[in-house]
Every structure is written in structure tokens, then in C-alpha cells.
Design a protein around this nucleic acid. Structure first.
Lengths: 223, 223
DNA sequence: TCACGATCCGGACCGAGGTCCGTTTAGATT
DNA sequence: AATCTAAACGGACCTCGGTCCGGATCGTGA
């Protein structure tokens, strides 16, 4: 056991600070070397093109590398694995959503009542996932990592915070997990594409769930 | 485009009837040829041995085939894919659980009030998953198939039925999905192994969730 | 007992994800 | 400008899941 230094130190930690990410910065690479940054951009662009042309299934690591005129090793060095690449593709919209509920206008952002924010949050997540369902599904890592990704951690933290304001006596951490689980992309896929439920029903389901869990009257009750 | 007959017709449909499976039969192979049945048993035994020796990670299709002194193609013919093999390993306990809540003694089985059955159901699922966590995790198919497997369909049907008796006015189908999502093995793994929550807390969380969703007082309230 | 067809077996083969390591290069220092 | 080092590059290589099809086997009917 001489040296155990990994070939690539680590594949670009997704977020710098644990949860607090500034929303203004357009990109997030810490301090990539010029060529590395260029290749990163080319890879993302190539991947997006491949998706547009042949769907997520066409996004093969080799194909992406070839399309970006780059070695295969480079793809893995930059993104860690296929999941990492797909996540990076989703990163933009993830940050958008985060910015919206962290500092955007009500009812999503601060300024609205916690209960209302929670309702809006679920609906937003629901529709966002529905839009990019294929990508979201393909980006799903192995079960072990599903919840450790910082992006979902951020959502969880937010929901937990809202819950603490609405039902302070509950086990908000646990409850947040449950609520988020009901917004899982795989579940949305199953319900909409395999069971044929319309999005409106899922939306209503979320509002109803929130109402039950928080023991508040459902929205639309106040006339 | 002459003939499109698949090499292997289908990899052993997991259950014969949609949901109604008789609980008495010990095994379920429809009518396998003698050698096929023998090989099937040897494969399952070999897989179990491999798990015991080196964990789920050691369960490679080739390794299982070799350990069972059988060709690789045979494994795939019998179980379809790796997920299928792992599922088959879980099949016994799945049927056990199903028998318990379908025809076993209260509070799980019929005879107890629906609300009580629902509570017991969650707790049972919780502990069963916790026992075989590694296997449950590894057996998780790609997101697209997570919910289409008959075993989970059976759980869902049961929960839906109970819900209909407890909260007839709700969207029980949807609610059942949500409740089951909160018992997902991946989530249990995250909460217990990565967040360090004790099982008691998850159990309490389930009971609390049921209470909220059904708008009933939590158990232990009656004195 | 024999023959025959459906079923099953085996292992070569393929594609894709992921790793390794010798080589190249950016860019900071002198 | 010359040098030096950490970082990045590239593609051969490995493993593993999954497919295919020629050949062996079971078990049934005569």
C-alpha cells in the first residue's frame, strides 16, 4: 500500500457550500483550467445535441466523447460517471427552481405564508419533473445515492424549514422525506405514463396531501 | 422481417393471476421441465451462497452461473435479468408478507379494523425491508419498472383497499402510492444508514403519517 | 423401445460503463 | 524565454450485463 492517490481527485463537487449557493453566478466550475473548461462546455453541448437527436438512450459516454471530439477518459474525469453528466445537464433548471423558492416572488419565494409556499413548491417540482421526465429518470443514480445528492438535499432542507413553521410539533425531517418521496420522478412517470393520470390529478393529490399532513383545510375552501 | 419469435418466450412470469395468488403453494414455477427446475433451484442456492459469502456485489451473473455449474445463458433464460434473479431471491419473504396481510391473524390480517391493519402493514413492511436492505436495494430495477412489478402492485392494491374503508372520500389510489413511497427501501436505507435514524423513529413516523393522512388520532392516545 | 419435436443448455459474442497510466499542456515562476 | 509541475488528455483495457444460435435433452406418443 504505497500511494493511494486516486487518478482523478474528485469529479467536480456539485456545489461549493453545503446548501447556500449564490444564485447569481451563471456557471459553477470552481477554477477549471482553460482547456478543461472549454472541453466541459463542448461535452455538455454535445450531450444536449445527442439527447435532442436520439433521446437519452443515445447518450453514450463514448458517443458524447466522440461528438465533442474528446477522449473518453475526459468525460469521466469531468463528470465522474454517466449519472454525473446527466445531472450536470439538469443543473441549470435545478438552480433555477432553487433560486425561485429561495429568493423569488411569492407564492414560491419568501413573502407568502409557509403553507402556501409549500403548496406552490410541490406543484413547481411536479411540473418541472414532468417536463424533463426522461432526463430525470435517466439521471437517477443507483438507490444508494438517490438522496445524498446535494440538489435533493437542498429541496429537503427547504421543505423541512417550511414544515417547521407549519407543524412545529411534528417530526419535520421525516415528514419532509415523505412529502418529497411523493414527488419522485419515477413515481410521476408511473402515474402519468403507465397509469394514465393527468397532471391535474397529481397536482390535486399534492394539495390534498399537504392539507392532510398539515391538518389544514384544502385550498379553494375559502370560497 | 421473417419471424420475430424471441429466443426465450418470457422469463417466467412472476405471478400467474394478476393479484390473487394462492398462499399455500410453496413454489411457483408453472410447469418447468425437470432439468430446468433442477437448474433453477441450483441457481437460487448458488446466488444465496454468493450473497452470504461476499455480499450482493458478489452476485455476478457469470459467478452465479459458474457456482451453479450452469451456462450463463441459462441464468438469463430463467430469470430474465439480474433484477429478476434478485427478485426471485426475495420472492419467498414477499409471499410470506402477502399471506400475512391477506389471510393471517390480526392486526395484519382481516379481523382487525382497517386503520389498525394499515398501521401494522407499514410497520411490517418497514422491518421486512430493513432486514434485507442490501438485497432490496440491489434488486431495485431501473426507475421505469420500479412500480410495474406485481409484488409492489399487490402491496398497493392492499393499501388502496384499506384506505377506501378509512377515508372513502379521498383519492385512495394516489394516496396509496404516496404512503408506499414513504416505505421505499432506498429511503429506509438513507434514513437509517446515512442519517442514522433508529428504526423506532421510522416506525413512529409511519404511525404519525397514517394518523395525519387519515385524520385519526395517533395510536397510544386511547389512554 | 424408438422416434420426434418442443424445450433447454452453453458459451462465444457484443456494447457500454468505468479504470489506468504514459503523454501532453496550461500557466505560474524565475 | 526557459523551466517546471500540477492538471488534463486520450484511448487501450477490463468487467459485466445481456443476446444469439447450433447442439444436447427431456418426455411424449406410437
Amino acid at each position: 500500500m504505497s500511494s493511494a492517490l486516486p487518478p482523478f481527485p474528485k469529479p467536480e463537487e456539485p456545489f461549493d457550500a453545503p446548501q447556500m449557493l449564490e444564485v447569481g453566478t451563471s456557471s459553477d466550475e470552481p477554477c477549471l483550467r482553460a482547456d478543461a473548461a472549454r472541453n466541459r462546455a463542448r461535452l455538455l453541448e454535445a450531450a444536449a445535441r445527442l439527447i435532442a437527436e436520439q433521446g437519452v438512450a443515445g447518450v453514450t459516454m463514448e458517443a458524447v466523447a466522440a461528438a465533442a471530439q474528446v477522449g473518453k477518459g475526459t468525460v469521466f474525469r469531468r463528470f465522474g460517471d454517466r449519472t454525473g453528466l446527466l445531472m450536470a445537464l439538469l443543473d441549470h433548471s435545478a438552480r433555477q427552481l432553487q433560486a425561485d423558492f429561495l429568493g423569488g416572488p411569492p407564492p414560491l419565494g419568501p413573502g407568502a405564508a409557509p403553507l402556501e409556499r409549500l403548496r406552490a413548491f410541490g406543484v413547481a417540482v411536479l411540473y418541472r419533473s414532468a417536463e424533463q421526465l426522461d432526463l430525470q429518470l435517466a439521471a437517477q443514480p443507483e438507490p444508494t445515492r438517490r438522496f445524498s445528492h446535494p440538489a435533493v438535499g437542498s429541496l429537503r432542507t427547504h421543505v423541512t424549514m417550511l414544515l417547521r413553521q407549519i407543524v412545529p410539533d411534528a417530526d419535520c425531517d421525516l415528514l419532509a422525506h415523505t412529502l418529497l418521496a411523493s414527488l419522485d420522478p419515477a413515481l410521476i412517470h408511473h402515474l402519468t405514463r403507465q397509469c394514465g393520470m393527468p397532471m391535474e390529478r397529481l397536482e390535486a393529490g399534492w394539495l390534498d396531501l399537504v392539507a392532510r399532513v398539515t391538518a389544514t383545510p384544502p385550498p379553494g375552501t375559502g370560497r
